[in-house]
Amino acid sequence: MSSLVSWILVGVGQALVIIGIFCDLAASIMMLRLPNFFARLHALTVGSVGGAFIPLIGAALIAAGCDFLGPYRWFMAGGAVVTAIIEYVLAGAGTHAIARAVYRAKAAPLKPIVADKLAEDRGGEER
């Protein structure tokens, strides 16, 4: 019975880790191929939420299912969940902070652009 629960936990965790690997590869290719800074913010979002948050939850489930790690596996699962929650909060906060700063300081080119609603709201001057 305990073995079956362990296998289910490990299987679900491995499915989450595989989703994370796919998001990770997609985010790295996007980070290399997208044209400018504000498009690469999307790559960072995919890489931090899909590529780090989901595999951390999956690693927590794998660690909770691994009997061979001994009783310290609960410490490992809890640490992985705490890391996931901290990462989920801090990645979005840091991304918004640096995006706002770069937009206001004009530190990155804005050129391949579709629409700039913030500049239109501020009076429509073009950069």
Binding site: F37, A43, L44, S48, T83, E87, A91
Partner: peptide, 18 residues
């Protein structure tokens, strides 16, 4: 530019944590 490098190091570190 410098913000691109910051983004790359950020994403690298988050994935390295996992």
């Amino acid at each position: 530019t410098v913000p691109d490098m910051v983004l790359a190091v950020d994403a690298l570190s988050y994935d390295l944590a996992a």
